[in-house]
Design a binder for these strands. Structure first.
Lengths: 208, 208
DNA sequence: TAGATTGTTAATCGATTAACAATC
DNA sequence: TAGATTGTTAATCGATTAACAATC
């Protein structure tokens, strides 16, 4: 897999959903599944499923279908879930705290190493197993703890500045919850979660 | 506008981003903008901008461009932000609380009317200006308060059941944060925010 | 071997970009 | 009027779907 040809964003966007369904099937002790069965489950065409998987090589077997456990593992590898990722959260407000507690990220190799805030009233408080640190320690911490991914969970105003800072520390991935787009070098990837955009989309769809 | 022809999901997905940029321009007291200036700002083609806007009718003027304030207002209308929406949140965990506090939804016509949880230790507690209510009051509350939008912020396990319940109460829009897809009738719209999917996408992009 | 289902090529569909006439 | 820029049509590009030969 991955011999240089780029995979389209459309395909990448569908991978986590495949991963989720395959995980459920595995948990239900289902051993094999055909593209057309999966098609029925996920409401996408069987053709698309086969095309998507074939971007990464052949995971199936003619006449049999796909082995659930194997396919699940392979998609996990493609998504990079086998490598551990070390994260810090910038912003210990409600959202930052929610993200720490959220789901079992750890089990999939996402390890939250630290959480930072600028509010003196919050610094020093416990959040889950972490203690909120002051912002001026952020850069040293990122470097010394080999942080992979920075989660930006602060308001719009400070977000751009923080992004610039952390990029200078060598961070190559940002999970951005601030209501603004970040301008970063082309070798840095940003995944935006613009909640207000999402809610507006819902509002649009509702009125039809 | 909106004379029956359907607008593609791709276009709808871009509207909130236009709205965000136009809001910023308006706040900066910029009166007019051309598609090519906006193109430079947003890093999309001027052609796409003009095509997108023209799905809803002509908002611009040849030789002049677009009036920022007018365009902002019109996109707001298209997104349905002029109508007030009444929401409840199901799940008063970290995420539910984060959403209540998050940003100034109210100013854009999203009014959080109630928050519900099944945990007896949480029921009765204050969250912002709301008091956490028990789940068995959810259905009556939705009907009596004419709730538009239900936010599902509980774990996967209960989410499908809650979705079924609220659909029976006539709710037509769900903002779903649970790690699962909801199966709802075709007249109900669901906007999914699958945070773990988003993080996996970031993980994929990071390893390239 | 026969049946099933993939992997993959070809056809279709839709979305994006380019071009330019209309017009402010 | 001349210059600028939209609205819109046409061309291109990419993604999805259909079809089927390969093969387990």
């Amino acid at each position: 897999m991955d011999e240089g040809k780029t995979i389209s964003q459309a395909v990448i966007g569908r991978l986590p959903r495949y991963y989720r369904y395959l995980g459920d099937l595995r948990d239900a002790n289902i051993e094999r599944i055909s593209s057309s069965e999966l098609s029925g489950l996920m409401k996408v065409t069987a053709s698309q499923i086969r095309q998507d998987f074939n971007n990464f090589g052949g995971f199936g077997q003619q006449g049999y279908g796909y082995n659930v456990k194997y396919l699940y593992t392979e998609i996990g590898k493609i998504l990079g879930l086998n490598d551990a990722h070390r994260l810090v959260i910038v912003g210990a407000g409600n959202l930052g705290r929610a993200l720490i507690g959220y789901s079992n990220y750890e089990s999939r190799g996402f390890i939250f190493e630290g959480i930072f805030d600028q509010d003196p009233d919050i610094i020093g408080k416990e959040v889950g197993e972490l203690t909120v640190r002051p912002m001026n320690e952020l850069e040293d911490f990122i470097i010394s703890h080999k942080i992979d991914i920075v989660v930006i969970a602060i308001p719009k105003a400070g977000a751009v500045e923080v992004a610039e800072k952390i990029v200078k520390c060598g961070v190559k991935a940002i999970w951005n919850f601030a209501h603004t787009d970040l301008n970063v070098p082309s070798d840095v990837v940003v995944e935006n979660v613009h909640l207000s955009d999402s809610l507006m989309k819902l509002s649009y769809m509702l009125q039809k």
